[in-house]
């Protein structure tokens, strides 16, 4: 358990570091760090508590993070990208990408095939999560606008 907490904290600090590296300099660093922690904890809960496979976990984590980023971006009026890209950093399959290329240059082609399938599925799961999250957010925003217009009338 404490390992998971440590890992989540590390992931959040990683998000913070990348945000600074990418030129974010103001108060938005706080929600970005929190979003990084959220991304990894959703993944951990989904995989270790609920017991889904890692792709479903990554999908759920990317979806939750995207919804948070879309909501915050509308609240503080900033591009979603600015919040979302650093928040997703802990989910990025850097480790598996490393092992994949390691197998490739060491000519273990069988492992390379398995690893590259894994990396592509992971990246695909994250991308699906982002896209569906973005659609939900846009849909909710239009719905909200319509409701508020009716209310005013």
């Amino acid at each position: 358990m404490s390992w998971y907490v440590l890992q989540t904290v590390m992931g959040a600090v990683g998000s913070l570091g990348f945000a600074i590296l990418f030129g974010v300099r103001d108060r938005k660093l706080i929600p970005i760090t929190a979003g990084g922690a959220l991304a990894w904890s959703v993944y951990l809960v989904s995989v270790h508590k609920i017991g889904t496979d890692m792709f479903m976990g990554l999908f759920a984590a990317a979806l939750a993070t995207t919804l948070l980023a879309e909501l915050l971006a509308r609240l503080v009026r900033t591009p979603v990208l600015l919040l979302l890209v650093p928040m997703l950093i802990p989910l990025i399959p850097g480790g598996d990408l490393y092992y994949m290329m390691d197998y490739f240059v060491r000519k273990s082609l069988h492992e390379f095939g398995a690893a590259s399938k894994k990396v592509m599925t992971e990246a695909g799961a994250i991308a699906m999560g982002i896209i569906i999250g973005a659609y939900i957010a846009t849909f909710a925003a239009t719905l909200l606008k319509k409701v508020s217009v009716h209310h005013v009338r």
Partner: peptide, 23 residues
């Protein structure tokens, strides 16, 4: 090395490009 590679590796680019394809 994975810690270092995170800074170099095109993980964000990989995800973004798949997003572009889905879009």
């Amino acid at each position: 090395i994975i810690g270092n590679i995170m800074l170099l590796i095109p993980g964000i680019q990989l995800t973004t490009s798949l997003r572009d394809i889905f879009n």
